[in-house]
Design a protein around this nucleic acid. Structure first.
Lengths: 338, 338
DNA sequence: CTGTTAGCGCTTTCAC
DNA sequence: GTGAAAGCGCTAACAG
């Protein structure tokens, strides 16, 4: 902490008034305490002159509010979460809040300890991308009286406000597009972790297949790819699907989609002639790729602002808890890969 | 702040000892205060049983250390800065620090106010991506006794530890590669903001041109592109350069490089036949593009860990200030665009 | 070995 | 209208 920072008492002394008075003025409570305009102005001027900056640590200790919200994402380096962090930063800062972040790497132990650290730092609220395995821990969080919301996915069995893309709908629309182009055998690629957002996408995909009457319960067209060593695992899955004469591929997220493009380039698979593809998410690379990739873009901005809005509603009125799940529609972007 | 959280006095009462004792044990000072193993264990057990979590706000107020470091980037949604944030998070968390971030959007007013907010929140140190226009403000920061380092670029006239990619070298190597492929007239595209990192890249480019004996001081081959409305501005610059019969393009950063690829795709410009290109930075899209793009990748991880290392050196030993600039070598990645 | 106590800087009653 | 003082939860110096 910087030494010799000017504090309330310094400006009180300089003006020969009490700290209480200065505090009132500087926290905008001059009126309700009927402090004279004159004095108030003098205080404010002196504060500016001395460059006073309130010590939020002390204020927080006293008021029980830190003005900080904690954000737990899977990985801030992932542009999807980076964008989310940015929108959350924007919304929070409008309301005078700062954001502290942590990356869980889809690891429940990491998530739990990040949340614990945030709690001990007295964050006023939490925005959490829950991970598989942290259900019990998060269920307990509800006993602490700290407001939180989930974003991007829900946590199985944990009753809490959740803001997600309509993943089922996205999976359905993407698959439907493939079918409308005449595809008969659509393979799906997804992480093998039980992430609820990914499984909804697959449900949408399967539901669409069923409605089109080309769902074969006997043959498994869903390729689960390890989260670790994804690249090799994905490649062998692709080979298998190709051998099984699939005519279209559905990728459940951007990492899978992007890596598959590299594979197709390196191995002379021509899109959309040899195989048609679609993917969830809309990273920059999908627009650059040749051909450009048809995809379902998530409404990151709307999700983020909705999350913050709900969080602050809870902060101000903790009784108004509804534990709803909000499904926000994404955006089907048709390009040239199918 | 969560109500009814268990605090030191609760566990002290439960054990019928004093808070001081409990504090000592829980902050690992049991030994040096010669507290009996037995009692220490009882305290720790009870703390765990009650689920004690120290209130860092109170601790911070008392000790004058918040355990928070502030990170100011241009935009956390930009994958380059997202990655940087992640590496900084990793390093900081090893040392028990949390990171709070803010995005300046290359706007000095925003940067200044973010830093001020961080200061009032008593961050222990700052990692700053300085922007054009904040020089005076940052110079003043040196008077506050808070350690900080610059990363990604230096701030003209502000004496402080700075960690950068060797931008000159990168600009030189990229240009040199183009020349070795027989290019005679290389145009360069760069933001019109006076970002020190970008100008070093251009200096490297010019220096290489000079050494190759193809630098024509009379003809301006450097196209400065507005940061705002970059896309249209870039496109008209490209058209101009094409008209001027340039045979190669050098892009000073990823945004410029990526957008140019879209332009070339949409307008039937064939790379590398019509024109050869190279770019700074290595976004995912450069690998996906057809052809893939030759580029100079910045050593984000090394920069981040170096920055944190230096920051913590200063934190622990504020006398050891050297105000050096560290230039870290990047990585030339040769692909198919030239 | 363990208890007591004085603050860290701020807000907020309550007196005057 | 303004001042005094208590106390947020914790640490550290000092007694005992």
């Amino acid at each position: 902490m910087a030494k010799g920072r000017v504090k309330l008492v310094d400006i009180a002394k300089a003006l020969d008034v009490s700290v209480g008075l200065v505090s009132c003025v500087l926290s905008g409570k001059a009126k309700e305490n009927r402090i004279s305009k004159n004095l108030a102005k003098k205080v404010i001027d002196k504060a500016n002159e001395l460059g006073y900056q309130a010590n939020q640590m002390a204020r927080g200790l006293r008021t029980g509010k830190s003005g900080i919200i904690g954000l737990v994402v899977a990985d801030i380096a992932n542009p999807y979460f980076g964008k989310m962090a940015r929108f959350i930063e924007n919304e929070a800062s409008k309301l005078g809040y700062q954001v502290m972040f942590g990356s869980s790497d889809e690891d429940s132990n990491k998530l739990n300890s990040i949340v614990n650290v945030f709690l001990s730092r007295q964050v006023d609220g939490l925005v959490i991308v829950p991970v598989n395995g942290s259900e019990e821990f998060l269920k307990n969080l509800k006993n602490q009286s700290i407001p939180f919301v989930f974003i991007d996915r829900y946590s199985e069995g944990v009753d809490a406000e959740t803001i997600c893309t309509d993943n089922f709908e996205g999976g359905y629309q993407l698959t439907n597009l493939l079918i409308s182009k005449g595809c008969k055998k659509v393979a799906a690629f997804v992480y093998d972790t039980n992430l609820t957002n990914n499984s909804e996408r697959i449900k949408g995909y399967e539901s669409c297949l069923k409605n089109a009457g080309i769902y074969d319960g006997n043959e498994d067209l869903v390729y689960e790819v390890g989260f670790k060593h994804m690249e090799q695992r994905l490649e062998s899955s692709i080979k298998l699907a190709l051998k099984n004469k699939c005519d279209a591929f559905f990728f459940a997220n951007n990492a899978l989609g992007v890596h598959s493009i590299k594979y197709f380039k390196d191995n002379g698979v021509t899109i959309p002639n040899d195989i048609k593809i679609v993917s969830f998410d809309n990273p920059e690379a999908f627009q650059i790729a040749e051909p450009s990739i048809t995809c379902y873009e998530q409404p990151i901005e709307q999700m983020s602002s909705k999350a913050i809005k709900i969080l602050f509603d809870k902060l101000e009125n903790s009784s108004l808890v509804q534990n709803r799940t909000y499904l926000l529609p994404g955006n089907l972007i048709v390009r040239n890969s199918c």
